[in-house]
Write a protein that binds this DNA or RNA. Structure first.
Length: 263
DNA sequence: ATGGTCGTTAGACGA
């Protein structure tokens, strides 16, 4: 089974590109982040025509997460228990969606950006990650036999070599001690980065800012991750970051991450 | 030259 995750930065703009990616990599399950549309705007036909079922949650032009699967899409869950809400939203932002696909519990996650260290959004980010850790620890305790994958845009660069130049990030989000501790807490809860062993750095990134020629200059960040429970991690045989998808006109600012599992 | 580019949208805001 092949599982992928991709912050697409608008599914309506990139539906055809995503469809081509699914076929090129023979992907069974794809988690998407930043679909940037409401449920009624999601271009489901493009993917159903290729044999994929679709689960999506999106309330507005912001956020939005989806899971596409051609190996079953069951027990769809919107949000995780305890997921904090932003500002005065009556409903939580569309940043977490789960489904069971081919026996794997897949969570498509779009961790809040944080904006700046002084912004309330940064506090929200840390609380969000803390609540995710607590829930994820519970899933593992309740049912360790079911493989669980926490995948998506974590908006954290856990190691110094996950950014091209640490001096640029001296007082920025994504690399702060608290964010890294929040990420590590999920790892400590039993979820392993299954991609890094197959894609050792430095210089391996999943995101490059659109501005300042970041991509051609190879100035990126590794912020998209597949964290697997022990039952998931033990089945991973290969992983890659498809840097080709960041090239050319009409690319997302993120590259997809692909993981291969034994059946 | 204190920006640079995208996406949502119709003036900004978010990333």
């Amino acid at each position: 089974m092949r599982l992928a995750t991709w912050n697409v930065n608008s599914i309506r703009t990139r539906a055809d590109r995503v469809a081509a990616f699914l076929q090129r990599h023979d992907v069974d399950v794809l988690a998407l982040q930043e679909t940037k549309c409401r449920d009624d705007q999601f271009p489901e036909m493009v993917f159903s025509a290729l044999g994929y079922e679709v689960a999506h949650v999106g309330h507005s032009q912001w956020n939005g997460v989806a899971i596409l699967s051609r190996v079953g899409l069951d027990d769809v869950t919107l949000g995780f228990p305890g997921q904090p809400c932003w500002a005065d939203d009556t409903s939580c932002e569309a940043r977490a969606l789960a489904a069971t696909c081919g026996g794997v519990r897949v969570w498509s996650l779009y961790v809040p950006n944080g904006r700046t260290l002084a912004d309330p959004h940064y506090t929200y980010k840390l609380e969000w990650l803390g609540a995710l850790r607590d829930s994820a620890a519970g899933w593992l305790a309740e049912d360790p036999a079911t493989p669980v994958a926490l995948v998506g845009d974590w908006n954290i660069a856990p190691q110094d070599d996950d950014v091209w130049d640490m001096s640029v990030f001296s007082s920025a989000t994504h690399v702060s001690a608290l964010e890294r501790a929040a990420f590590q807490a999920v790892v400590d809860a039993g979820y392993t980065d299954v991609v890094r062993p197959h894609t050792p750095g430095p210089g391996v990134y999943t995101y490059w800012d659109y501005t300042q020629l970041r991509f051609p200059r190879r100035e990126g960040m590794r912020i998209d991750f597949v964290l697997g429970s022990p039952a998931f991690a033990s089945r991973v045989t290969n992983a890659l970051v498809d840097r080709e998808e960041r090239k050319g006109k009409g690319a997302s600012d993120h590259a997809p991450v692909v993981v291969e599992l034994t059946d």
